[in-house]
């Protein structure tokens, strides 16, 4: 589904990704871990199409479509979804209007007519109950005055509404208490399907207790230095990252 080859990216003069390779197949969950500053969030931003990041080399394909050629909005319509580490507050734009515009943008892209009001509201109801998001929150301005947990649940709510092919979760567990972590994970697990893939970026093994990955990758200094199964996360939790660096240097 997603093929990343030799990806190089920089912000300003600072090269952050230095030849990253990753292959994600439908139905898989890939966890990406790694020390601070290793390039995890940069990878998420580059995949979603953030303009501040400049790709200097390499390729990214989603089901054969060159993503790097597309604007952020077109990537989203092709099925890429980024759950933000720090969701943005947009006063004055209602969460529901926002989602409706997004759903209809995708439908137009697929040659479908705008969603019927009734169907949309049913979808909203279903998705907000999935992440236990208070109905009133879905009617308020996007993320405005939401608590940290509510913002993250709103990300998963949006993900559920938009039904993307590729979900990228950028430190969705940061700032969550245990209950919120459980709710968010439940939402993600409910969305697992043979056609959908996840890239879960996290610092902590605890998220992976709830969202069980098929693969764990360690990103360090802009490349993936080690890959393994879910047990790699446990090993990292116990031993930190230094042993990998030593292994690299050896």
């Amino acid at each position: 589904m997603l093929k990343i080859k030799n990806l190089h990216a920089k912000v300003g003069d600072n090269e952050i990704l230095k030849g990253l390779n990753l292959d994600v197949k439908p139905g898989e969950i890939h966890a990406i871990m790694g020390p601070n500053g290793s390039g995890k969030s940069t990878l998420a931003a580059v995949l979603a199409g953030r303009e501040a990041y400049e790709v200097t080399d390499g390729m990214v394909e989603l089901d054969g479509t060159d993503l790097l050629d597309l604007e952020a909005s077109d990537r989203a319509r092709e099925g890429v979804f980024l759950a933000f580490q720090y969701p943005i507050e947009i006063p004055g734009v209602s969460n529901l209007n926002f989602m409706k515009a997004a759903v209809n943008a995708k439908r137009a892209h697929q040659g479908q007519p705008p969603i019927k009001a009734k169907d949309f509201l049913a979808k909203v109801k279903e998705c907000s109950s999935l992440v236990e998001l208070d109905g009133r929150l879905s009617e308020r301005s996007v993320n405005e005055g939401f608590s940290g947990g509510e913002k993250k649940r709103n990300e998963i709510f949006q993900m559920a509404i938009l039904e993307p092919k590729l979900c990228i979760l950028d430190e969705t567990d940061s700032g969550l208490d245990i209950d919120a972590l459980r709710v968010v994970s439940k939402g993600v697990n409910a969305m697992r399907s043979p056609d959908r893939a996840f890239i879960v970026i996290t610092h902590y093994q605890r998220l992976l207790d709830h969202i069980i990955p098929d693969f764990v990758h360690v990103l360090s200094n802009g490349i993936i230095v080690k890959s393994g199964g879910k047990e790699l996360a446990l090993e990292l939790e116990a031993k930190g990252y230094d042993w990998i660096k030593e292994e690299q240097n050896a």
Binding site: G49, E71, S73, D74, R75, F84, P87, V93, A105
Partner: peptide, 10 residues
């Protein structure tokens, strides 16, 4: 960017 990342064009 947040709006665009959900499929809404510029």
């Amino acid at each position: 960017f947040y709006l665009k990342s959900r499929g809404i064009d510029e």
